[in-house]
Structure formats: structure tokens, C-alpha cells
Design a protein around this nucleic acid. Structure first.
Lengths: 107, 107
DNA sequence: CGTCTATTTGGCTATATTGCCAACTAGTTG
DNA sequence: CAACTAGTTGGCAATATAGCCAAATAGACG
């Protein structure tokens, strides 16, 4: 029955919020395969370099990735590959929701 | 190497976004223990009833909960308890991040 | 040193989210 | 039906997020 501390909830929410964007999900998915430089991620999501950089800052502030500069490039690494496990559950939510929407429509 | 479809990414992001709020996380955590009426959830998060109701609408639109009216009350149920598994991973991110922040500060 | 390349930062506008209040809806009960 | 209770909806102001451009930074290299 114990309530979770407000602080804990906020930190958890921050991490989920950091993930809650299509471009950032795409980048995380790519980083799950190995480290990538910003330029590679930019080509992937096809957004302005500055936009990509800001998305990466969001992920970094949340503690999901870290970066290392080597020469002219900055390489990002996914620190918590366990987030990839979220998607099995997320997909099941999507599937169930679609089904339910169809059922409602059928009425 | 295949890019995930934009559409899939958006739907995934929507679900994560729905979870990414302290009050909603608190409600989801409570609903993981069983169905609850809006009034119970309101007491838990101590916000305006209308605010609670809107948070629940967000969770419902994402397909995470469903609601049933019985008498004067509306009961909400968590449809995908698997989201509770997210938090083990989320906590590890928080722990690692804290550690790293401490390391940086120590320099 | 001057220039090129990769990335970050600042600034701005457009859009989305949050949370409150007030008004409305829908059951319940006298 | 009138009054009450539980919840939802509309509307608004405050705040946060997204994405673009321009300017700044930081290595690499002639």
C-alpha cells in the first residue's frame, strides 16, 4: 500500500519522457547495434544536425547514452540496452489496442 | 540494418509518452494492484478530479487502461501489467546515472 | 595560422502539455 | 422531480518541447 516517493516518480518519468519521441527511439534502436557518430544518426533520422544533437542531449541527460569525442567526431553509446526489452510489451499494448478499436468499430 | 517504420516509432513513442508523467506513473502503479475508481486515484495523487480524469484519458487513449462505469463510479483497470517490468531497467539507468554524476563531480 | 569538418549552443517560433476552474452529464436517492 | 455524488468536458493561462537557422567551438590539416 505504500506510495512511491514523488522524487522517484519524477526521475522515472524523466527517463520515459526521454525515450518518448520517434526520432529518439530510432536512434536508440540504432545505438543498440553499437556506437554511432552523430553524423550517422543524422543520416538515419534525416533531421537537421542541430536537432539530432539536441535529441542526443536529451538522451544523455537522462543517463541513457554517453558520448566520447574522437578526432572530429562524437560517438554515442547506449548505456542501458535493457530498454530494448520495453518494446515487446509496447507492441502488445499496440496490438491489444488495435483489436479493441476494431471491436468497438464493429458494433 | 533495416530502419523501423516511422509509423511504428510514433505509436511506440505515444505509449511511452502516456507513461511519462509522475502522476500517471503513480496511478499505473496503483492500478497494478487491482482496479480502482477515479475517486481512489484522486486521493492518491491529490490533484483536482478533472486533472486526474484527464490523466486517465491519456492512459486510455494509449491503450494502457480501460474503464467501466458501475453505478456512480468509474473503475479503471490496467490492461498491460507488463509495463511494470520497465522499472527494473529504469532504476538501473537511474543508479548508473547517479554514479556517473558522482564520478564527474569527484574530478 | 587559416580553413575545413563535425558538433554544440543560442535564439526564435510553433505546437503540445499541464492543471486549474466552471459548466455539464449521468446515475442515485429521497 | 429535486438534490446529491462521481466523473467528464471546455476553456484558459503557464510552461515545456520540437525543429529550424545562425553563430560559436574544437579538432584536423595544409
Amino acid at each position: 500500500m505504500k506510495r512511491i516517493k514523488q522524487n522517484t516518480l519524477e526521475r522515472r518519468a524523466n527517463i520515459l519522457k526521454a525515450l518518448a519521441h520517434p526520432s529518439r527511439l530510432m536512434m536508440v534502436d540504432e545505438l543498440a547495434k553499437g556506437e554511432r557518430c552523430v553524423c550517422e544518426l543524422q543520416q538515419l533520422v534525416r533531421a537537421d544536425m542541430s536537432t539530432v544533437s539536441k535529441h542526443l542531449t536529451v538522451l544523455k541527460r537522462a543517463g541513457l547514452v554517453e558520448s566520447e569525442k574522437r578526432g572530429l567526431q562524437v560517438f554515442y553509446t547506449l548505456l542501458s540496452p535493457c530498454v530494448m526489452n520495453f518494446f515487446t510489451c509496447v507492441e502488445s499494448v499496440i496490438a491489444a489496442h488495435k483489436e479493441q478499436a476494431a471491436t468497438v468499430a464493429r458494433k
